[in-house]
Write a protein that binds this DNA or RNA. Structure first.
Lengths: 158, 158
DNA sequence: CCATATTGGTTTGATGTCAAACTTTTGTCA
DNA sequence: TGACAAAAGTTTGACATCAAACCAATATGG
């Protein structure tokens, strides 16, 4: 059947499909971020949680520049997020012993607890979602999405 | 082979997979938005472009509340975006003839031109991406991503 | 060894975004 | 019809984000 029955169903170009994909991703991100921040404790934002989570999982004692690179934000943004985490007592910022330009980001015990609380707070929402989004689908989706991420990552217009 | 060779490759829970998916989506969004805004003309942002694009594709003469609902932002956010588009001369805001509370968003000719220019400016980037992200993959991905979006959309914690 | 380039971090200004409080207008219903 | 509820839009305050300009410290090269 070469002729689509639905006159609306015009054949989209490869580029148009990609654009649609990025648009959908934008909306998902917006909805997910809003839902996530609504349940996070201590007024944590997604950006702040991401720093705590990364520090727990990959180890703390990183420099702000390293965190900015890994988490894909500018250094200015990281400066701001770290300042708020320090205000809340969830990290400490110490001067680097060997490089006078650098600092080191250390988790505090309260920071670890706050990350744990955040995980628990997010769980019910994720659990609810598992009902509608089958595991096989997510397993199929993830590597493809990672491929999109990898391409964008490598083709940043510096 | 029930034992994974890689000791890192622990079996992730369904919830953890979903979390990873949303994290990847967040990073993709950030990279795509930054890349897109770098090429947009007239200092347009993605939010502003989205309003122009929607008005061209779906017709203008909508109310701010309608646009906010369709584009998944709060009314306060839409107020701000529309104000900047009006400053740039790309839309006009007129009072609704029948409902004294409402306004109507009208595209100006310059607004239509700016949207066209934006599409052209974005094309080279999308074209580049088509090389790395095959059409069959995008076609496979899109309906699944739409399913995720639809679930989040319906399960907003109002 | 010194001039220059690079790197780490900060600051500023603009924008998007949300939640919450607020005003104005419209709708409901008793 | 008059009180109250609902809806449209705005404003404010907080945060994330970027780009660009900036300072300080380190690295490089002649």
């Amino acid at each position: 059947m070469p002729e689509p029955a639905d006159p609306e169903a015009e054949k989209l170009s490869h580029e148009q499909l990609l654009f649609r994909l990025l648009t959908e991703i934008g909306i998902i991100n917006q909805l997910a971020e809003t839902a996530f921040e609504r349940v996070l404790p201590h007024g944590l934002t997604r950006a702040q949680f991401t720093v705590l989570n990364h520090s727990v999982r990959m180890g703390d004692n990183r420099t702000p520049a390293q965190l900015a690179a890994v988490l894909q934000v500018t250094r200015g943004t990281m400066t701001s997020t770290l300042a708020r985490l320090e205000e809340k007592g969830f990290i400490r910022l110490e001067p680097d012993a060997v490089d006078g330009r650098s600092k080191r980001v250390l988790l505090t015990p309260q920071g670890r607890v706050a990350r744990e609380e955040s995980m628990r707070a997010a769980f019910p929402f994720l659990e609810l979602a598992t009902g509608a989004l089958p595991r096989e689908m997510v397993e199929l989706l993830l590597p493809q999405i990672e491929q999109v991420r990898a391409w964008l990552d490598q083709n940043r217009l510096e």
